[in-house]
Simulated scan of single mutants.
Amino acid sequence: MAVEPLLATRAQRAFISTITIQAIAVLVLIGITFRFVDEHVQLRATRYKTLPCYLALFALAELFELFMAFDALRLRNIIQLLGILIFHVALMVFAALQVHQTKTALVTMSAAACSVEFSFVNCEGPGTLWNKVQPFLITAPCIIAASWVLMLFWVKALYAEFGWAIFHVVGANPKMKEMYQWYQIMICLLKFDFFFFSGVTMQLLIVVLQRNSAEFGVTISAIPIVLILLVLCGLAVQREVKSVMTISLVMMLAALSYCMVVYKLVRFYQPGSAEQYETTRATLTIFTIVAFILLLATFAVGLRCFSDFDRGLQSSKVHSIPVRPSTSTYPSGNMSQKQSNTTGVPLGPRISIE
């Protein structure tokens, strides 16, 4: 049975198409909302920065999800596909939260005050800016939810399709199977770590921090440091380099402390600083908590993967991308050799990780 190349099957093409169409539709809705608001308010004002922040985060999220989808199909990685489904639910929650946050930013006058002095920007109800953009904001999470149902259907088809591909990667020993699964979880966590760290950083840079503040400089400098940390950790766990892995795990502990000290949640709710976080408090809180939990999980899984070093899994990690076998590689009479090596990688006994 041959391993199909990337996007060669109906399920793969449909999965990518669903994500792409959903991304375009949602970004168009957000762009329309952004344009309507930009026509009537100064988006540079802290109160209204939730809209450019929302647009920037969703653009980043959709591009990240599309990259993760292609990467999962390329690697035939079922665990990463499941991670994308969970991430898609997070996008739906984020889009739903934005309805409340946009209303908080726009509607600043009570119904009683609006009855006395009507304001197109600051009131709610018919004939107001909020009434104009509300349908676009509500439609976005609905589209994301509908696309999630379709994605779930295609992931089920891909799970069945990728079973044979994984057969060529993991050894027959059940312990090897378990170790490889933990390795896949680790790599997947590292990718999501980067997105959620970038999400928290982007929100703080756009909405809260002043360019002349010390915290702004620290936040900017943290981006390449975290990226290098995640890349080195991924290479270390794949190549089983103990020294680099040790440094990566120690830096993760430092990063956990950074999240709790610099971006501590109490600042979002303290009376002295609560006002500047008012229109982005919900998403900042969720992003910060998720980023912390993911980094903590990555550290724990990293320790688990570290304990599996030098136990015979490195070859499977390095040669983990299945390829379509060539029918002309072997003489037609040597069927046993043809069946024993279909990937170009030296193989031991194999078993599916399903």
Score class of each variant (00 low, 15 high):
3 V>S: 06
5 P>C: 04
9 T>L: 01
10 R>H: 08
14 A>D: 09
15 F>I: 04
20 T>Y: 07
24 I>A: 06
25 A>P: 02
26 V>R: 01
30 I>M: 08
31 G>L: 12
34 F>W: 10
35 R>M: 13
36 F>Y: 03
40 H>A: 05
41 V>T: 00
45 A>Y: 00
48 Y>D: 00
54 Y>V: 07
60 L>W: 06
61 A>Q: 03
65 E>G: 04
68 M>P: 02
75 L>Q: 14
78 I>L: 15
82 L>G: 07
83 G>Q: 13
83 G>F: 15
84 I>R: 00
92 M>N: 12
95 A>Y: 06
95 A>D: 08
96 A>E: 14
97 L>A: 11
100 H>S: 14
101 Q>R: 10
102 T>E: 09
102 T>C: 08
105 A>I: 06
105 A>L: 05
107 V>W: 00
109 M>H: 09
111 A>N: 03
114 C>P: 01
114 C>L: 01
116 V>Y: 12
116 V>N: 10
116 V>E: 12
124 E>R: 07
125 G>D: 04
126 P>R: 13
127 G>T: 05
133 V>S: 01
155 V>C: 07
163 G>S: 12
166 I>A: 08
170 V>L: 03
170 V>I: 05
172 A>R: 04
173 N>S: 13
174 P>C: 08
175 K>G: 02
178 E>G: 07
182 W>S: 12
182 W>N: 12
184 Q>S: 11
184 Q>G: 10
186 M>V: 09
186 M>Y: 14
186 M>H: 13
195 F>C: 03
196 F>T: 05
198 S>G: 06
201 T>H: 06
204 L>K: 10
206 I>V: 14
210 Q>T: 01
211 R>I: 02
211 R>K: 02
216 F>S: 00
217 G>E: 02
217 G>K: 06
217 G>S: 03
230 L>N: 00
232 L>D: 08
236 A>H: 08
236 A>Y: 09
239 R>H: 13
239 R>F: 15
239 R>L: 14
240 E>W: 13
241 V>M: 15
241 V>Y: 15
245 M>T: 08
246 T>G: 13
249 L>C: 10
257 S>Y: 13
260 M>I: 07
265 L>F: 08
265 L>V: 10
266 V>N: 10
270 Q>S: 12
271 P>I: 11
274 A>Y: 08
277 Y>M: 07
277 Y>G: 04
279 T>N: 09
280 T>L: 11
280 T>I: 11
282 A>G: 09
283 T>G: 11
283 T>S: 14
283 T>I: 14
284 L>Q: 12
285 T>N: 07
290 V>N: 02
292 F>L: 06
293 I>H: 01
294 L>R: 00
299 F>W: 10
299 F>G: 03
307 S>K: 12
309 F>W: 02
310 D>L: 14
312 G>R: 11
314 Q>M: 15
321 I>S: 12
324 R>S: 10
324 R>C: 08
325 P>L: 15
325 P>Q: 15
328 S>D: 10
330 Y>N: 01
332 S>K: 13
336 S>W: 13
340 S>I: 05
346 P>W: 15
346 P>Q: 14
347 L>I: 14
